[in-house]
Design a protein around this nucleic acid. Sequence first.
DNA 1: TTTT
DNA 2: TTTT
Lengths: 127, 127, 127, 127
Amino acid sequence: MLNKVILIGRLTRDPELRYTSQGTAVCNFALAVERDYKNSNGERDVDFIDVTVWRKQAETCANHLGKGRLVAVEGRMQIDTWKDDNGTNRKSPKVVARDVSFLDWPNDKQGNSGNNNQKKEEIDVPF
Amino acid sequence: MLNKVILIGRLTRDPELRYTSQGTAVCNFALAVERDYKNSNGERDVDFIDVTVWRKQAETCANHLGKGRLVAVEGRMQIDTWKDDNGTNRKSPKVVARDVSFLDWPNDKQGNSGNNNQKKEEIDVPF
Amino acid sequence: MLNKVILIGRLTRDPELRYTSQGTAVCNFALAVERDYKNSNGERDVDFIDVTVWRKQAETCANHLGKGRLVAVEGRMQIDTWKDDNGTNRKSPKVVARDVSFLDWPNDKQGNSGNNNQKKEEIDVPF
Amino acid sequence: MLNKVILIGRLTRDPELRYTSQGTAVCNFALAVERDYKNSNGERDVDFIDVTVWRKQAETCANHLGKGRLVAVEGRMQIDTWKDDNGTNRKSPKVVARDVSFLDWPNDKQGNSGNNNQKKEEIDVPF
DNA sequence: TTTT
DNA sequence: TTTT
């Protein structure tokens, strides 16, 4: 009924852009997310989390992001499961993003990966 | 730098309580989280997500929750990775919970799984 | 760059539905959100938070919600400010909802307030 | 039952540190949070939101943050209400922070405002 | 102004 | 497989 994930981290590599057979854009990248607290070795553990972005935002991410960039991702947690060739159950966890915000961008380019026009009606509403 | 997950769903089975060799309580259960939107077959897809709760909250969950109960979980996404006997990389995703709220509880028992005393100082602060 | 609010609480009264002069539906209600921890009097403090929902979801909320109902709201925090007749600055805080989920609904009606069709393309994507 | 706010924004001024009569540290600052989408004038609206941090994190914020710094805040929405001298009801909304992460910090100082030792037990747990 |  |  609610499945919400918010991550802030850095891209571990350049994003990959692909298209489905129906022509829908999909962008994949992985985020390195440092834990807030140091472990018993005095180091910060890091979670590496795969992220998938669809459609227009996929193209925006592919065009503007690169390895090492700092982003905030809002989305939902999804765990794809399948049986591999050995017949063992495998899990492929990822975050399917609804919004990606660029956090270390020069000021005049600042923004998110969304369509600037799609929420226009809401903004105009005087109520 | 931020890794935040919020889930609302129902337990797929009774929670399991274990203790580490140091005596720390740990409770595991899985949540069924329905998607908001129906798929092309007119059904709601369901995400099944493993949840781990530590210490005092682990015991509270084990004592009060059961299969089918509705809860809200706040925590972080963690993906444990290891090589299995075939030498293939395996992933074990879960949510490590910081708070669990019971949502379908009779009124006089309502609350979360935390220690009711631990935040007392904050509440008393007159500022 | 990110402004995200997630509330779970009960409606303090029936929702009110209005329309802007352009015909856009807007629904207002207030939520009672109990704190997880008891205060020094042994009671749970309650936050009362106004919520605004726009468009199609506004009508769904108005049609299906009522006083006392349990919902989850995802949205953003907005603080409208203005000068009143005495010339003093006044603040009107609220949550502008992006999604409202009904949590205490009979199972066959379960769901959220959104348009079940609008995300169809994403669901069909085979990637 | 759940009241969760996550903000990413920049401090509009230097943080202020105070102490309650019991000696508890409390730090106040305001965040400017840009909306993702431009309004009908082609500008990005900005939400200005007051933030309060308590105890050890208050001192860390006061010591390390300043006007213009980029932070992520996780906390809860709180609306204090009172009657002013004219007898009118006034509202004072803010976010009471549970965690503050510094996002534009040189690498060797990176981290959050929390106590690095307080979660040590969890990290050591071998389970 | 406030919900179970 | 991993970022600063």
